[in-house]
């Protein structure tokens, strides 16, 4: 009735009658609303309101370069979008970028977590180093990679490539290499995240199950396949969900490195919506692209949550 189930039972003297209980419950409700109101007002203003306004602007032609053409056009932006090859290309770039970065992060992160778990010394060093990439701004990471790592005839990656006999490459100028580069950069920055989460879950697994398996003479692979993997499944799915959402809306890590180029080779849907709105100043169509991104995000996360619930 009031603060917690404990109160009414432990303190009968405090709440002597039903009336007093009701008064307390009402006070608690009022207190809760007073505490929540400011934060929820701010959330409504900064998230719900822009969402509604975004859907509204997506039904307009809003061209900041040619304001005289502006006006309500209904679903025309969406009709254009379905016929826009750059939209479909950006969607497929999004999918390639998201799937490859998430798979790489989880695979390398899990492998490394298992590896480090077996180490007697040096776990602390790994934990410390793993923090460095994830706390950095993707904008700074992108800038550092673009210059000191990938710049032809200057960056370390190019230096290694030359010495390995592969020659100097235009890492960010060639469409395929540029795509690989932005995937590697994202993977570099966020594998430590998967690593840290999975290492923490591994460390929390009970030891006795392994003892039993060892007595049963289960091989290392069997132990991994039959015990570790099923127990880690919730953590892996969680990492996949979180990293997918981030990869779909990655911005700085691509914008600062290639700007979406060469051409549209690394232009994910998120970046296309940005470029359309703020480079080409076609805000109405950009809004429709952002709505499309939201729809894609919702579909993918619904699918992933279904996987998470499934046993």
């Amino acid at each position: 009735m009031s603060t917690g189930s404990g109160t009414s039972m432990d303190a009968p003297a405090f709440i002597s009658s039903m009336d007093a209980g009701r008064v307390l419950a009402r006070r608690e409700r009022r207190f809760a609303s007073a505490l929540l109101a400011p934060a929820f007002a701010a959330l409504l203003a900064t998230t719900t309101f822009p969402l509604l306004y975004l859907i509204w602007t997506s039904t307009f032609r809003i061209d900041l370069a040619m304001p005289f053409t502006n006006g309500f056009i209904g679903i025309d932006n969406y009709r254009d979008l379905l016929a826009d090859s750059r939209f479909w290309s950006s969607l497929s770039v999004s999918m390639i970028y998201t799937i490859s970065t998430v798979v790489l992060q989880v695979a390398i992160g899990l492998g490394l977590a298992l590896f480090v778990m077996g180490m007697k010394k040096g776990q602390g060093l790994f934990r410390l180093i793993a923090i460095l990439p994830v706390v950095l701004s993707p904008a700074v990471v992108g800038m550092v990679w673009r210059t000191f790592m990938l710049q032809p005839e200057f960056g370390i990656v190019d230096f290694l490539s030359i010495n390995a006999g592969l020659g100097s490459q235009n890492w960010l100028g060639d469409p395929t290499l540029a795509m690989i580069s932005v995937i590697v950069i994202h993977t570099w920055q966020w594998t430590p995240f998967a690593f840290m989460v999975l290492l923490a879950s591994l460390a929390a697994l009970p030891d006795d199950i392994y003892e039993a398996a060892r007595i049963d003479r289960a091989s290392a692979w069997q132990r991994f396949r039959r015990i570790t993997l099923p127990l880690l499944r919730p953590a892996i799915v969680m990492v996949v969900i979180m990293r997918t959402m981030v990869a779909l809306t990655a911005f700085a890590a691509i914008f600062t490195v290639t700007g979406g180029g060469p051409g549209t080779a690394t232009e994910i849907l998120n970046l296309y919506a940005y470029r359309k709105s703020f480079t080409e100043l076609s805000i109405g169509y950009g809004s429709a692209l952002a709505v499309a991104l939201l729809v894609v995000t919702i579909i993918i996360s619904a699918a992933l949550f279904a996987v998470r619930r499934a046993k």
Binding site: L43, L51, L248, F278, L293
Partner: peptide, 23 residues
């Protein structure tokens, strides 16, 4: 209320900045 707080995070940032830029 708790669900709402979580759901607001689904919105892609680019979908927030486009309308807010106009505002």
């Amino acid at each position: 209320a708790g669900f709402y707080v979580l759901a607001t995070q689904m919105l892609p940032p680019v979908g927030i900045i486009i309308p807010y830029f106009l505002v």
